[in-house]
Every structure is written in structure tokens, then in C-alpha cells.
Design a protein around this nucleic acid. Structure first.
Lengths: 226, 226
DNA sequence: CCAGGATAAAGTGTATGCATGAGTTCGTTC
DNA sequence: GAACGAACTCATGCATACACTTTATCCTGG
């Protein structure tokens, strides 16, 4: 196997984590594939030590499974587990929306509405890439607005783990406009300070996203063999 | 500093993680204290390699903070963060209770009720230790009952991170009986399949626990200097 | 006396070598 | 011919050595 050039920003370990995570979520390393330390060390032209540490971190992220004395493999996300993560995402987003409605400062509400209104243009233009960026920003605002560090951490982690299974989300035609309308319901409830309404709207939104992702997910499951 | 004997079960790293985690949550290593790899290696009579890996895992657990090239320190749990974790715990338990009410199998409902009824005896006897064990079992049943692997993982992690701040919970007089009554409300709602009721009851229960823990927490904050 | 920089000391990051444990293959025996 | 066992191979776990980063101290110049 050819050695791959490593983008050396920060420590070797950090570079390795980025490179390996990318190789995994992009599907170059399929789930279940053995990650042999020596081979990886050669592949990236580093020693085994940083490889070991990188595998440790990826294991903590849930991207690889490690068993003592038996090496590491790319984590296989079972159908069950994947479903449970989408499910959990719905609950967590719902919480953030409710808490945002209850706790956001005036400035935060204004900012949320601002970026939401500005995104209307992206929908008309059909700018999928740009809308995806906006979407991330929008949800991050909800996580921030909940004013709870721990929930923020948990929901961010869940979101990043699901990322590989959501990439194609906005490719589905008409999804952009629907997404904006759903966001609109959330924003409206938050601006009213209506916690229950925001929770309900968020729940509806994320469920839709889960469904929209499911086709892609099943394709991924077939490809990845989870 | 004297070398400490390591309970060598499993790999060296696992033993180190246990030992260090214990030293941290028990307060022997106060938050903010520098964890110098060389010293720790000498202290436990191992080399730096497993110490580094152990620190990495503890960092992933949130027990230590690590900055590149600048070493590791025992994580300081800010007042803010601690509050947010109790807060998050309330939300997560509420979710589990609701989902349990909606999804538990007949056998699971029966088992939950069984252990709950059996615990009545512990209350009368004032068996704090035994009740604490039962309490853990009770809540674990709720996490299982939600039938969601990811939420189970998240709530378990949160619970374990909060563990050091809850230890004195049942020492507070009358807390045992109150706890049982609160559990009773949750069980009743779950047996009825009343999701909203279970959520509400769980929320009330965990809030009380948070309040009950707060005195201890503030003591801990003073001791630990968070 | 203070500020700035060079230098040394300490500690983390990485490489490499050795030992232990798991997995495999081949031989022997039933 | 199949099954069990022993030896061998190879990857992981740990130790040690080296390199680089950070930081503290000291000296020099203003």
C-alpha cells in the first residue's frame, strides 16, 4: 500500500486522527476492516506510537472499535444503533429548541431570526452547499441557545457521529424549501417564547430529516455493510 | 512521592485508568493539579507509555484536561458546567422515563415494579447502602426501557461523571422515603403507559436529587476548588 | 532597576526495540 | 480422516531513548 502524505498541522497525532477519520467517514476504510498499527504507521510514514494514540482517540469518538490484545477495526454501526442515534437526535434537538425558547437572550433570538430570514435567498437560488452551511449554523444556534454546556457537548457529538449518514440530505429535491419552512416554525415558536411549540416543531423537523436521510442511510448500510 | 501498588487486572493502562480515576473522584488529586507523566510513571512503577494512554482515556472521559505540549491537569468542573450536567441529567432521565412508558415490554414493566416494591423494605430499615444499589438498578432499568442504545450511552456517561458529586445523596435524613415515593410516581405512570406522566414524575424526581446533592456539591466545590 | 532576549532545564511528542499474548498452522494421535 | 495439541508467527503492549516545545532563569543592555 502506497504511503499517504499527511497534512501536518498541529501534532502528528492530530493529523492522523483527521486523516483516519476522513478515511473512515468517506468509506475508504469500510466498517469491520482491520486497522493494523504497523501498516498504518507505514502508510502514513510515522511510527507506531502516534498511530496507537490516534486509534485511541478514534475509539473514544466511536469511529473504531478496540479490543485489548486484539487490535482495532473500523466501527460497524449497526442498523439498530444508527436508528437509535437518529432517534436520540430528535429528542436532543427537541430539548434544545424548548430550552432555547425559554432561555435565549433577546440578542440571540434576533440573531437566530436574522440568519433564518437571510437563508430564504439560498432556498430560492437552490444553493444546496450554502444552505447546508447555514443549516449547521442554525442548529448550532439552537444548541447555544439552550445555555447548557453539557447538552451542547452531547448533541454536538451525536451530530458529528451522524454526519457521514446525512451528507446527501439536501440533494433530495424540494428538501430545501421544506427545511426552511420547518425552521420557520421553530423560529416562530422561539420568538414567542413558546417552549412546548418549539419542542414540537423541532421534533417534526428532525424526524423529517431522519426520514430524508434514511434512503441514503440504507444505501450506506449496503455499501458499508453495517 | 511513594510508589503506589497497582491492582493489575487486565492491561496496565486499564489499571492505571481505574487508579487515576479513583484518585481524582476521591479528591486525592484536586482539580487543577498538574499530572506530570514522568512522576505518575514513577508513582505507579510503570513506564510513561501506558501513563500517556491512560491520560488520553481520562481526557476522553472528561476527568482530565490536556493541551498539546503543555501537559495534563485534573479537570476543574466549573460551577456552571456542574449545574448544566445536573440540568442535562433531568432532561435525559425525563426522556428515558417517557420512552420507557411507551416502549417497555410487559416483562420489563413487571420487573421494574418488582424491584420497586421490594425496595420498600429497604426504606423501612433505613438501609442507605442497599437502597443506593437499588436506586442505581432502578434508573438503569429506565435507561434500558427506553430501548435506545445511544441515549443509554449518553445518560450512563453523564451519570458516571456526576457520580462523585452525588455520593452523599441518601445521607440526608428522610431522603430514602421521599425517593421511594418519587419512584412510585414514575412506576405508576409507566405501568399505565402514560408517557407524559412518567416524564413529569421523572423530572420532579431528578430535580429533587439535584437539590439534595447541591449542599454536598457546594461542599465539594469548596474542597475541590472548582 | 527594569526590559528583553538568550540559554538551560524540564516535560511532552515521537521513534524504536523487546516481551507477551493471541491466532494459525502443521504434526501427531485416536 | 478428524480432532486435539504444540510450536511458530505476528500484532499488540510496554519500556526506553531521542527530539522538539515550552517555560523559567539569568545575563546583558538600556
Amino acid at each position: 500500500m502506497a504511503t499517504r502524505e499527511l497534512v501536518r498541522a498541529g501534532t502528528t497525532v492530530e493529523s492522523l486522527v483527521r486523516a483516519l477519520a476522513d478515511d473512515i467517514v468517506s468509506g475508504r476504510f469500510a466498517p469491520g476492516v482491520r486497522l493494523d498499527e504497523t501498516s498504518l504507521a507505514m502508510r502514513y510514514a510515522v511510527s507506531r506510537t502516534p498511530v496507537r494514540e490516534a486509534l485511541g482517540r478514534l475509539s473514544a469518538m466511536g469511529l473504531v472499535d478496540r479490543r485489548p490484545n486484539r487490535g482495532a477495526v473500523v466501527a460497524t454501526v449497526s442498523d439498530d444503533r444508527l436508528h437509535s442515534m437518529f432517534d436520540a437526535m430528535t429528542e436532543l434537538e427537541a430539548i434544545c429548541a424548548r430550552l432555547s425558547a425559554e432561555r435565549m437572550t433577546a440578542a440571540e433570538r434576533r440573531h437566530l431570526d436574522d440568519i433564518h430570514q437571510a437563508a430564504r435567498r439560498l432556498v430560492h437560488e437552490g444553493a444546496e452547499e450554502a444552505y447546508a452551511v447555514h443549516n449547521t449554523e442554525f442548529h448550532t444556534r439552537l444548541y447555544d441557545g439552550a445555555h447548557n454546556l453539557h447538552i451542547h457537548e452531547v448533541v454536538s457529538m451525536t451530530r458529528s457521529r451522524l454526519a457521514p449518514f446525512r451528507r446527501a440530505q439536501f440533494r433530495i429535491s424540494g428538501r430545501l424549501a421544506k427545511s426552511w419552512d420547518e425552521h420557520d416554525a421553530i423560529v416562530t415558536a422561539i420568538l414567542r417564547g413558546d417552549g412546548a411549540g418549539a419542542e414540537k416543531a423541532a421534533r417534526a423537523h428532525v424526524s423529517t430529516v431522519s426520514d430524508a436521510s434514511s434512503e441514503f442511510v440504507h444505501g450506506a448500510q449496503r455499501r458499508f455493510g453495517g
